[in-house]
Each structure stands twice: as C-alpha cells, then as structure tokens.
Design a protein around this nucleic acid. Structure first.
Length: 298
DNA sequence: CTTCTTGTTACTGA
DNA sequence: ATCAGTAACAAGAA
C-alpha cells in the first residue's frame, strides 16, 4: 500500500538522531582544523552562498559541538559558530583519511558509509586528512557560519529542551494553555518545545494514551503530566538506541540507529496495536501523517 | 500527469 | 502581541 511504501521513505532526523550525530562527531572533530571546503554544483545548503561559506569556514578550528533541538552548533576558533540543520534528508558523515590503518591492520572505513555520493553537497577536509560530508537529497538542510550575536538570535527561537533542567512540567502546562490547536501541533511547535518531530510526537502521544488530534486546551492536567513524562522517556530511550533509521538516517559514521524496532505506532498504520491488537489508524493531524490506536488513545 | 511525503519559515488574517 | 492556518520549498516514489 501507499502507506507502507511511503513510510519506507521517511528520513527525518529529530532530537535523538541529531544528538547521536553530535556525540559521534564530537569525538572525531574537536581539535581538528579545516584545511579545505568543497561545495557541489547543487549548492543551496552552503549559506549564505557557496563562496562566502567557503571563506567563512576555511582555516577554522572546531573547538566544541553542541545541539539545540534539531540544530547542530559547531563552536569554531575566532568566536565563530557553524550552524548545521539536516531538515528532512540531511546527513553528516565523517570519514577517516583514506587508507588509514586502524587496529589490526584493516583499512578504514570498511564498509562504505555512503559518502561521498551523488547527494554530497558540502565536503569539509581537515588538517589530518579526515573529511566530513554533508549529504542532502532534497536540499532543505543548510550549514552556515555565524558570529555569537547571530547564533544567539537563532537560538532565541527555540522552546524548552527535553532532557535538560529547562524542561519543566510547569512550563509544559503553560504551553498547552489557551491553545485550541491539536496536541500534536503544539508538540511540533519548535519555538515552544524543541526537537520533537513526527516520529517521537506520535510515539509520545501513544505512550501517554492521548489522541494526537485532541485540542491542546482540552487535555486534563494529569494528561499533560503524562505527556510530559512520555516525551522524556521516549527521547531518552531513543537517544540510548542511537535514534531511528527508517531508511535515511545515518549516525556520524554512516551507521543506522536501532530505535525503529521499538516504535509502537509510527510507520505501523493498519497493523495491530502492540498493546490491545486493535488495528492502528492513520489520519492527518497538523498537516502530518499521524498513526494512533483508536482504542488506547483518547 | 497528479498526489503524497516532512521541517521550517514566511506570510496571511483574526 | 499572539494565535491559527496555509503556501512554499525540494526530490522522488507511486
């Protein structure tokens, strides 16, 4: 069916996937200096323009890698920051220098990690011969170098961040007050809650037993609390499993995430609910494909 | 050919 | 100022 096939095409890095990439890349890139930046012909992701991007990044050293929501923030020398957003089909894949010998004498990498490929838009080479590839089939993602003020301006648009001390139940309650739109739409609203996308919103709603289409202001206080806890639990577990790979997501080494097999509803339309065996329904909520259990979720 | 997919922003109007 | 709703972006599958 269309549902099944289109689910196979989903490639959406959300908070857990971006966090997985951040952790991988932090181990590899911190301390390295950019020796060369190459931009492909279809160069939209290199912002504000390929020439300016290359100029801004060349020669910079990566001193730290942070994340806010789905946005990666590479701290650079000279108080500059490289912002990277993967949007729907972006990948960031690191490769050791060609022919580098690791451990027992095997050339690395083995196997092929999918970089560079036809969707490689930006290639960043480092002083030790290693490389970082920004692949993006659909050109929605971007990388750009900004100063501290611009970085703060961008970050000011992000809402409360799961898994941090700023993710407070009290603020969560406020976010749902006076909102007549669907609960799912509120959860996807990045300036309110950062990092959730279609996969984890549907999963969190299932765990909290809430119908994603239920108007946000109609949730009871216990329901909001349940949802708050569900988000923390799901995101934490997904990070531990290195994210969800449907087809496109790859970690910083080009490998898949393991959370897909733990999904309860996402991508499982017309399949039996893992709890009650009722056939899972698919509908459109907040202009997104939405899967839920009509019996478990109210 | 049309429709569908999704993260985010820009824009509309209330 | 804040909220709600929608078009736009873009490539590929069906």
């Amino acid at each position: 069916s269309r549902t099944k096939n289109s689910a196979l095409n989903k490639k959406m890095p959300e908070l857990p996937e971006v966090e997985t990439i951040r952790r991988d890349l932090a181990k590899k890139l911190v301390g390295k200096k950019v020796s060369k930046v190459k931009v492909a012909k279809k160069s939209k992701p290199a912002q504000p323009s390929p020439a300016v991007f290359i100029k801004n990044l060349s020669g910079k050293k990566i001193t730290d890698i942070n994340r806010r929501g789905k946005l990666l923030i590479f701290k650079l020398s000279d108080d500059q920051f490289l912002l990277g957003h993967l949007k729907m089909t972006g990948q960031l894949i690191f490769k050791e220098p060609a022919g580098k010998i690791i451990g027992g004498g095997h050339p690395y990498p083995k196997p092929d990690v999918g970089a560079p490929n036809t969707h490689t838009r930006i290639t960043i080479n480092f002083n030790d011969g290693s490389s970082l590839f920004f692949n993006d089939q659909r050109l929605f993602g971007y990388m750009r170098v900004v100063d501290e003020a611009e970085k703060e301006k961008v970050l000011s648009r992000f809402g409360i961040e799961p898994l941090t001390k700023n993710f407070k139940l009290e603020d969560f309650h406020k976010i749902f007050k006076n909102r007549s739109i669907a609960t799912k739409a509120v959860l996807l609203d990045q300036p309110k809650i950062a990092g959730l996308g279609n996969i984890y919103v549907d999963e969190a709603c299932f765990l909290a037993k809430i119908k994603p289409s239920k108007p946000a202001n109609k949730l009871t206080k216990p329901q909001r609390e349940k949802l708050f806890k569900a988000i923390n639990k799901i995101i934490k577990e997904a990070v531990a499993k290195r994210g969800t790979t449907f087809n496109g997501f790859r970690d910083g080494d080009g490998n898949q995430g393991y959370y897909a097999k733990y999904l309860k509803v996402y991508g499982r339309a017309n399949q039996p609910c893992r709890k009650c065996n009722t056939t899972l329904k698919k509908s459109v909520v907040a202009a997104r494909g939405t899967v839920y259990c009509p019996k478990c979720q109210k």
